[in-house]
Each structure stands twice: as structure tokens, then as C-alpha cells.
């Protein structure tokens, strides 16, 4: 099941990407600051504290991702 999910998401990404090019003059809406996957803190909804509570979010890597101190 898990492998199936990964496969589906991978295929979706590959198929969905690069099939068409949107002209520059048509990119007004997708160029809005809040339409982009911005690194600016005011335009992101990700939380730095949430991965502490929800270990599956795991964004920072390292032992931060493991959370459980004694787990192997």
C-alpha cells in the first residue's frame, strides 16, 4: 500500500510536470506572492513547532526527525 502511494505520487508528478509551458504573459496569477512556494516567512503556512508534536511531518532531518530518544 505504501509503495503504491509513492508510485502514484511519483507518476502524478512526472505526468503533471512539463507537459505544457505557460507563457510569461499568462503567469500573472501564478506569480502572486501567495501563489508561490515562498521561503519568506510571511508567505508560508508551515510550522517549526508542529514537527515536535507530529513526528511524521519531519522537515528538518537529523535526530530532530527521530524525536524518540531511545528508539532504534
Amino acid at each position: 500500500m505504501r509503495r503504491y502511494c509513492f508510485l502514484v505520487s511519483l507518476v502524478t508528478t512526472v505526468v503533471g510536470a512539463g507537459c505544457t509551458t505557460v507563457g510569461v504573459h499568462e503567469q500573472r496569477l501564478v506569480s502572486k506572492p501567495n501563489m508561490q512556494f515562498s521561503r519568506r516567512v510571511v508567505y508560508t503556512y508551515s510550522s517549526k513547532l508542529m514537527p515536535q508534536v507530529q513526528p511524521g511531518l519531519e522537515t528538518s532531518g537529523g535526530a530532530q526527525a527521530s524525536t524518540c530518544a531511545s528508539c532504534k
Binding site: S9, T12, T13, A17, C19, V22, Q27, L29, V30
Partner: peptide
């Protein structure tokens, strides 16, 4: 990261 249409932008991370 992709602009799929003039209204849709996606980001997929593995």
C-alpha cells in the same frame, strides 16, 4: 516545482 496552467502551481517533494 511546476506551473501546470496559468492558475495552478505545484510542488512535490520526495
Amino acid at each position: 516545482e511546476n506551473v501546470l496552467t496559468k492558475r495552478i502551481r505545484t510542488l512535490n517533494t520526495f
